[in-house]
Amino acid sequence: MSSHQGRARRNSDCTAGGSRPVARAPHRRQRAEGADQAFVIGVLTNAADFARARAWGVTDAPDFERYLADTAELLADALERFDTVRARMFHPQDFAEFCLLHGLDPAEAAARDRYLVNPPLRTQLLPYQGEELAGDYLPRLVRARENGLTLCHADLLLDGALYGAAQGAEGEADEEHVRWVRSAYQRGGEVFRRMLVGAGAGVYELRLRVDAPGGRLTAAARVLQWEDGVVRINDEDLELVCAVLCAGLALELPGVAVLHGSQGSAATCGEYLPAAWAWSSGGPDWGPAARPVRLDGVAARPGYSLGTVC
């Protein structure tokens, strides 16, 4: 299942990874000045979802392994033909609920196309750059769906201002609201930066929870930090962490964060030490937890003061 702009439209039934896609028209539309040619595809991420989706004719692959191979081939072709290639998890339950809400037949290709490019789900899209599907990319698609739901929740709590949605609205109140949310987002990013700077080089995972109206906001991110301060983190995970911190700080919600992993680097003769720190917030600031914390099964001692980290 796929959608794209700037080329002849493909057969949606084929682009779910069943058979090779066939262009419906032999011509290409001219690219608008300054516009990218984009390709978007929905990917089934496990055998159970594959089995359910086959009933709607999403793919004619005989099994999940063949489906992944066909999808990988399709993506490789898209990388050669399009400026931007993005993917998102095709979640059968989400799709069924989407069709019910909009009165669509899930067996129709048009329904799958509408689901794929549904604007509220844009936060679930991931760029594809040639990664192995069966490696880390499929789990990232699953996390991107979960992250996207959390981002939508946070944006709702912030009255649509998380992505600057109110910037084009008229009225001083809207502009003030956007500045307020932007300030909280920047403070959230600074909180995360100070956590990492204080930890130093190492391999870590951050787990974050903020108690919010409508349910908890949660985020997790794996971080690799070198001794020179360079950090490796998936863009979508960084975006989610900053968004959850933003919502917590803007609305002064209670929260807890744990950073744990192995502290050290090759520059320290390969010596790695287990580490786990915890911070909490009950208002406009984050500080060391008052007592030891256990979050998602990870035990951590009160962290260092973020105010002392440059």
Rank of each mutant, 00 (worst) to 15 (best):
A107N: 11
A144L: 03
A107V: 12
L158A: 03
L156P: 03
G215M: 09
A110I: 14
G202L: 01
P106F: 07
W180M: 14
E170R: 15
R112V: 07
R209N: 05
R222M: 10
R207A: 06
A184I: 03
E132A: 15
H102G: 06
L133I: 08
R140W: 10
R193M: 10
V197S: 09
E205G: 12
E131T: 11
E131G: 10
V178G: 02
N147P: 04
M195K: 03
Q124P: 04
S183A: 11
G189D: 05
A165F: 05
L151I: 03
L104R: 14
A201W: 00
L208W: 01
R193A: 15
P106C: 12
R114P: 15
L208S: 02
R182L: 13
R140T: 07
A166M: 00
L138Q: 11
D174M: 12
E190A: 13
A221R: 00
R209E: 01
E176C: 15
L206T: 01
R209Y: 01
L206G: 00
V181T: 12
G189H: 03
R114I: 12
G189E: 06
L224A: 12
R194M: 04
A107G: 14
L162A: 06
L133S: 07
N118P: 06
Q124V: 07
P120D: 15
D159E: 12
G198Y: 04
L138S: 12
P127V: 02
L104A: 09
Y163T: 15
R194C: 05
A161P: 01
C152Y: 04
L138R: 05
Y185N: 10
L162K: 01
A107P: 02
V223M: 02
A184M: 05
A184F: 05
V181M: 07
V178T: 12
S183Y: 05
